[in-house]
C-alpha cells in the first residue's frame, strides 16, 4: 500500500477514533459513573479495572498507542487546514473548527490527566475516589475537567458523524442530517454521564458511602 500511505494513515486515524478510543471513552465514563453510588462503589470498580489480566497490554494497545497516533496525526491534520468560519459561518464549518479546537484542547487535557492519574499510579500513588475528590476540590481543576469531559464528548460525537461520511456510510444529505441528530444525542447522553460522575467527586455526602 505504499502509494496510498496518506489514504491509509487518514483512514486509520478515523477508525482509531471510534475503535478503540471511542469505545474506551464510553467504558471510562461508565466506570467513573460508579462514583455516583458512593466512594466505595467507585473504588471497587477502579480496582476491578486495575486488576484486569494483561493490564499493560490492554493499556498499551487499546489506549496509549491509539490515542498517541490519533493525537499526533490529528495535530498534523489541524495544521493542514486554514479555518474560515468568519467568511463561511455555516453549521458544518463551525463543527469542522470545533472538532479541531476540542482535539487540540484534549491533547493538553489528556496529557495532564494521564500525568495526574496513571503516571502517579505507576509511581505508587493509589488511584481512588479521594484522589479525584482532592484534584477536583480546586475550582480551576473542576472547570478544567468539565471542559475536558465536554471536549471529549463533543469530539467523539462529531467524530462519529464524520466517520460515517468518511467511510461512505451516510451519503445522502438526508442520512447525514439524521446522523447529525444522532451525534447530538450521543453528545448529550455522554456529557450527562461524564459530568454527573465529576459532580459526584465533589459531593461530600458520597465521600463516606
Amino acid at each position: 500500500m505504499p502509494e496510498n500511505r496518506e489514504y491509509f494513515n487518514r483512514r486509520l486515524h478515523s477508525l482509531l477514533g471510534v475503535i478503540p478510543i471511542g469505545i474506551f471513552l464510553i467504558q471510562h465514563f461508565i466506570v467513573n459513573h460508579f462514583a455516583v453510588y458512593g466512594a466505595s462503589s467507585f473504588n471497587a470498580a477502579a480496582s476491578f479495572m486495575e486488576s484486569l489480566p494483561f493490564r499493560y497490554a490492554l493499556e498499551i494497545f487499546i489506549i496509549f498507542l491509539p490515542i498517541l497516533y490519533h493525537a499526533i496525526y490529528g495535530l498534523y491534520i489541524v495544521f493542514q487546514g486554514k479555518n474560515n468560519t468568519r467568511r463561511y459561518g455555516y453549521f458544518r464549518n463551525w463543527m469542522f473548527l470545533l472538532q479541531r479546537v476540542t482535539g487540540v484542547f484534549l491533547l493538553i487535557f489528556i496529557a495532564w490527566h494521564v500525568w495526574e492519574t496513571r503516571v502517579q499510579a505507576a509511581l505508587g500513588v493509589d488511584v481512588n475516589y479521594d484522589m479525584m475528590a482532592d484534584i477536583l476540590s480546586s475550582p480551576w481543576m473542576l472547570a478544567f475537567y468539565i471542559a475536558g469531559v465536554l471536549s471529549a464528548t463533543f469530539h467523539f460525537a462529531n467524530g462519529l458523524w464524520s466517520f460515517a461520511v468518511s467511510w461512505g456510510i451516510t451519503i445522502t444529505p438526508r442520512s447525514q442530517l439524521i446522523m447529525t441528530y444522532v451525534s447530538i444525542g450521543v453528545f448529550v447522553v455522554l456529557s450527562f454521564v461524564g459530568i454527573r460522575a465529576i459532580l459526584a467527586f465533589i459531593n461530600p455526602d458520597l465521600a463516606n458511602i
Binding site: 496518506e6 463561511y88 455555516y90 464549518n93 461520511v165 468518511s166 461512505g168 451519503i171 444529505p173
Partner: peptide, 25 residues
C-alpha cells in the same frame, strides 16, 4: 482522504452541484 467535511463547497457552488453527496459516495 484530505476532505475534512466542512461542507462549505456544497453551500458555495454557484451551480448547486451536490458536491458533498459526491464526496461521500
Amino acid at each position: 482522504q484530505d476532505c475534512g467535511n466542512s461542507q462549505n463547497c456544497v453551500q458555495s457552488c454557484p451551480k448547486g452541484i451536490p458536491l458533498t453527496t459526491s464526496i461521500a459516495a
